[in-house]
């Protein structure tokens, strides 16, 4: 039996241990904010945090999260997360919105580790998250804005 924390709550899973985390979260736990985009960790739409690090849940076998702690877009509640989501809304970053849960998860993970990212840092952290609406221009601005608002609070 696989046991882990999902958004702070204990969950268990029995069955095919190669099943990707994404499908457990979406179909078993019925949290649908994380999306399926490629299935091979090339687009980032499924990004979740595993023990605080961003992972591509579509390519993370559920066996890998045993004993760990997983956070999805539904479980975001840190100060950083609030700053990011506020910045996202202030700038109306979203278009179709499908990739945005993943974008936000990657952005939050970046800012949790580096609260003053440069453009180069943003490229490195965000290049794995595709957006076909090409909202990159606003994502970059939103990350800088979130960084500034966090600095003000501190």
């Amino acid at each position: 039996m696989i046991k882990f924390k999902l958004n702070g709550k204990s969950v268990t899973y029995e069955g095919d241990s190669s099943k990707p985390l994404l499908w457990f979260v979406r179909e078993d736990a019925e949290l649908t904010g994380s999306k399926f985009g490629c299935g091979v960790a090339m687009c980032g739409a499924c990004t979740m945090h595993l023990n605080g690090n961003p992972v591509r849940a579509c390519s993370t076998p559920i066996s890998m999260v045993d004993g760990g702690s997983v956070t999805t877009i539904e479980g975001l509640e840190s100060k950083t997360a609030k700053a990011v989501q506020t910045a996202w809304q202030d700038l109306d970053v979203v278009q179709c919105g499908y990739c945005q849960s993943g974008q936000i998860m990657s952005a939050v993970a970046l800012l949790e580790k580096n609260n003053k990212p440069t453009d180069e840092d943003i490229n490195a952290a965000m290049d794995g998250n595709l957006c076909r609406c090409a909202t990159y221009h606003r994502i970059r601005k939103a990350i800088h804005n979130a960084s500034k608002s966090l600095a003000k609070e501190a």
Binding site: T32, G33, S34, T72, I73, E74, Q85, W88, Q89, D92, V93, V94, G97, Q100, S101, I104
Partner: peptide
């Protein structure tokens, strides 16, 4: 649609 799309 910004709020709902920002919160998943």
């Amino acid at each position: 649609d910004s709020p709902e799309k920002t919160k998943g």
